[in-house]
């Protein structure tokens, strides 16, 4: 389990996270929802130990995040971090050299799953294929948790569908996933938990099936209540 406990973070004097708390379980898909600029990416960076906190703490499987945390978590950013003139195969080799937890078998499988050509250069890829390569580089790591920053934003519908297919496939297996999004439509039936954020605070955290069962409400119904009241 990833536990985010009362985390605060300021950029200069500007508070970005004002006491954020939530949990994300292994074997579940947790979705951080909020419009742009509410601190979603900052939360992911904090979980990756990429940004120092002002207060609060983050635990991974009961252990405070430390410099070894990256062996347990993969971060899939919303833009590719590989050099433009690299081929997809070069990018995979780079990851294999850099990370002990790299799983080449799963990487090869994902090339097929996404119908990518390993000889294509990063600079020549469409937005959709860039997102898929990004996804591949993260998911091919043998880690317990995967963080995905806006995996669906700005790409075509077919690429979105293919990426959504990852969530129901064995590629995610029993790992814990945290994804951020400002649009829930496509994935309402895919997620376990929703965490609604606004201006650096968690307004509501709930399980999507439970809220349908107990209150007969869709995720969007709840969002409407929470954000528009």
């Amino acid at each position: 389990m990833i536990e985010v406990k009362d985390v605060t973070k300021k950029f200069g004097r500007k508070p970005v996270l004002k006491g954020v708390s939530f949990t994300a379980n292994k074997g579940e898909i947790t979705c951080l929802i909020g419009i742009n600029g509410v601190g979603k990416t900052t939360i992911l960076n904090a979980i990756m130990n990429l940004t120092p906190l002002n207060s609060g703490e983050i635990l991974i499987d009961g252990e405070r995040i430390n410099k070894h945390s990256y062996e347990k978590i993969a971060f899939i950013p919303d833009a590719i971090t590989m050099l433009p003139n690299m081929k997809i195969s070069d990018a995979m080799r780079f990851m294999a050299d850099y990370y002990q937890c790299w799983n080449q078998k799963r990487a090869d499988e994902m090339i097929g799953f996404f119908k990518l050509n390993p000889n294509d250069r990063i600079s020549t890829l469409s937005k959709g294929n860039t997102a898929k390569v990004n996804m591949l580089l993260g998911l091919a790591m043998d880690v317990n948790y995967i963080l995905m920053d806006e995996p669906f934003s700005g790409i075509d519908i077919f690429s979105r569908e293919q990426i959504a297919d990852v969530f129901t496939s064995h590629l995610v297996e029993d790992r814990g996933v945290i994804i951020t999004t400002h649009e829930i439509n496509d994935i309402e039936h895919l997620i376990d938990k929703a965490v609604l954020l606004n201006e650096g605070v968690v307004l509501k955290e709930f399980n999507a099936e439970e809220i349908r069962e107990s209150e007969g409400k869709s995720v969007i119904d709840v969002m409407r209540e929470v954000y528009l009241k």
Binding site: G27, E28, I29, A164, D165, F167, T168, S169, H189, L190, I191, D192, E209
Partner: peptide
């Protein structure tokens, strides 16, 4: 889950 595009836990 894959055929129906739903959460595997569901």
């Amino acid at each position: 889950a894959n055929n129906l595009k739903i959460n595997p836990n569901t």
